Deep mutational scan, measured.
Amino acid sequence: MKKYKITVYDEKTGEKHTIEIEMSEEELEELAKKLAEKHNVKVRIEKV
């Protein structure tokens, strides 16, 4: 498992949230996809 920083940005409201999380790359990609689809936000992932 690796550490990642996830930034979620909502273009409508301008809200931006960043968290650090430790998980596998596959789980992370699935999480990012679900966030983007369900909440209509942009998701950026960076390795820490």
Rank of each mutant, 00 (worst) to 15 (best):
M1L: 13
M1S: 12
M1T: 15
M1W: 03
K2C: 10
K2G: 10
K2E: 11
K2F: 14
K2A: 15
K2I: 15
K2D: 15
K3N: 05
K3E: 02
K3T: 05
K3V: 06
Y4H: 04
Y4V: 08
Y4I: 07
Y4L: 03
K5Q: 09
K5A: 06
K5F: 11
K5S: 06
K5N: 05
K5C: 10
I6S: 00
I6N: 00
I6L: 06
I6H: 00
T7L: 05
T7M: 06
T7N: 02
T7Q: 03
V8R: 00
V8E: 03
V8G: 00
V8M: 07
Y9W: 15
Y9C: 07
D10S: 03
D10L: 03
D10V: 03
D10N: 14
D10A: 01
D10M: 03
D10F: 08
E11L: 07
E11A: 05
E11V: 07
E11S: 05
E11W: 07
E11H: 05
E11G: 04
E11K: 09
K12D: 14
K12F: 13
K12S: 12
K12V: 15
K12C: 14
T13L: 03
T13H: 03
T13R: 02
T13P: 00
T13A: 03
T13S: 06
G14P: 00
G14A: 03
G14H: 05
G14D: 04
G14M: 04
G14C: 07
E15L: 13
E15C: 08
E15N: 08
K16G: 09
K16D: 05
K16W: 15
K16I: 15
K16R: 11
K16L: 14
H17S: 09
H17N: 06
H17K: 07
H17Q: 07
H17R: 08
H17L: 09
H17V: 10
T18N: 03
T18Y: 09
T18F: 06
T18D: 04
I19V: 07
I19R: 03
I19L: 07
I19F: 15
I19T: 04
I19N: 01
E20D: 05
E20N: 06
E20I: 14
E20M: 11
E20R: 04
E20T: 12
I21A: 07
I21H: 02
I21Q: 04
I21C: 09
E22H: 08
E22W: 12
E22V: 09
E22F: 13
E22P: 02
E22G: 02
E22L: 10
E22S: 09
M23W: 04
M23A: 13
M23S: 07
M23V: 13
S24Q: 08
S24G: 11
S24N: 10
E25V: 09
E25K: 06
E25D: 12
E25Y: 11
E25N: 06
E26L: 14
E26R: 09
E26S: 11
E26Y: 11
E26F: 09
E27S: 10
E27Y: 05
E27L: 09
E27P: 02
E27I: 05
E27W: 06
L28Q: 03
L28D: 00
L28N: 02
L28W: 06
L28Y: 08
E29M: 13
E29F: 14
E29P: 05
E29A: 10
E30W: 08
L31S: 01
L31H: 04
L31G: 01
L31C: 09
A32L: 15
A32Y: 12
A32G: 07
K33E: 06
K33I: 09
K33T: 09
K33M: 08
K33Q: 12
K34P: 01
K34L: 11
K34R: 11
K34G: 07
L35H: 02
L35F: 08
L35A: 02
L35S: 02
L35K: 01
A36Q: 11
A36V: 09
A36T: 12
A36K: 11
A36M: 14
E37P: 03
E37F: 03
E37Q: 12
E37C: 06
E37S: 11
K38P: 06
K38E: 09
K38W: 07
K38T: 09
H39K: 14
H39T: 11
H39E: 11
H39I: 13
H39V: 11
N40V: 05
N40Y: 03
N40C: 12
N40S: 08
N40I: 06
N40L: 08
V41Y: 04
V41M: 12
V41N: 10
V41Q: 06
V41W: 07
V41S: 08
K42P: 04
K42D: 06
K42W: 00
K42F: 01
K42R: 13
V43T: 03
V43Y: 00
V43E: 02
V43G: 01
R44M: 14
R44V: 15
R44L: 15
R44G: 05
R44K: 13
R44H: 15
R44N: 09
I45P: 02
E46V: 09
E46R: 04
E46P: 01
E46F: 00
E46T: 08
E46L: 01
K47V: 15
K47G: 11
K47E: 15
V48G: 04
V48Q: 06
